[in-house]
């Protein structure tokens, strides 16, 4: 794999994660448990959509085929997406949404922090802008996971169920593959596996405070970030997200 292809793949992974998660979070608009939370969730979604514009914008630039961030978001089909399986998972209840957010945020902060040292200044620049947002996201999602885990009997049960359900999707974020190897070799991005120990420690501390038990099984579903086998959920999401662009090709909006 040449460097340009690897970089494009890597940037799509970053951008597709924020795109798909931002979309999922935006599905909550107007439906959150309390007004303050509605507003906070929209802030998270807005941050993620903004980051998507930067990552996919750079991906399109690196590709050099005349596509834009919007083309990549709206006109690729499922198999060309590089989002991790975790972010494709449906919202479920508020607890599941928050658990998914927390697991993502904890990884996200780690990877963005490392990317600030990227040999590619464009990558470092996007990471520096994004990490401020991600730090706030993790502060908020960790806090809510703790509060809901250690809340009522019902909320505890729901949060434990959410963790059990999402845990098998966490490992994929730390998988290494040839794209990652190429990125690491060029000094553009860290090896994902190298982030795991620190992130695990953070997660363990938060879950302990939340009185939740991390599943012992380290089994991880794979196929999202490589695009080899996405979840069925992603296709349904794209039918909504891409519908206008597909139904009225060539129109500007």
């Amino acid at each position: 794999m040449d460097q340009q292809t690897a970089t494009f793949e890597f940037l799509c992974r970053m951008g597709d994660n924020t795109l798909v998660l931002g979309h999922r979070v935006s599905e909550w608009c107007g439906k959150a448990p309390v007004l303050e939370e509605d507003i906070a969730l929209a802030n998270v979604a807005l941050d993620l959509i903004g980051q998507t514009q930067m990552w996919l914008g750079l991906a399109a630039e690196v590709e050099g085929a005349g596509r834009t961030a919007d083309d990549l978001a709206m006109l690729r089909d499922v198999w060309d997406f590089r989002s991790a399986l975790l972010v494709e998972q449906p919202n479920g209840d508020f607890g599941q949404t928050l658990m998914r957010q927390y697991l993502f945020d904890q990884w996200h902060v780690a990877v963005l922090t490392a990317l600030m040292e990227s040999a590619d200044p464009r990558v470092a620049d996007i990471a520096a802008k994004s990490v401020k947002e991600a730090r706030y996201h993790v502060e908020r999602s960790a806090d809510l996971v703790i509060r809901l885990g250690d809340g009522t009997e019902e909320s505890h049960g729901r949060m434990q169920a959410a963790l059990d359900k999402l845990w098998p999707f966490f490992g994929e974020l730390f998988d290494d593959d040839p794209v990652d190897a190429a990125m690491a070799e060029a000094g553009i991005a860290p090896l994902p596996s190298g982030l795991r120990a620190d992130v695990d420690q953070e997660v363990a501390a938060v879950m302990a405070q939340a009185t939740l038990v991390i599943p012992a099984d380290r089994f991880a579903h794979r196929g999202g970030k490589t695009g080899i086998r996405h979840s069925e959920h992603l296709g349904h999401m794209l039918t909504q997200m891409q519908w206008l662009q597909r139904a009225y090709p060539g129109a500007t909006w």
Partner: peptide, 10 residues
């Protein structure tokens, strides 16, 4: 209604 458990738990 769906949010009741969240408000109560917090």
């Amino acid at each position: 209604d769906d949010g009741a458990w969240v408000r109560d738990a917090l």
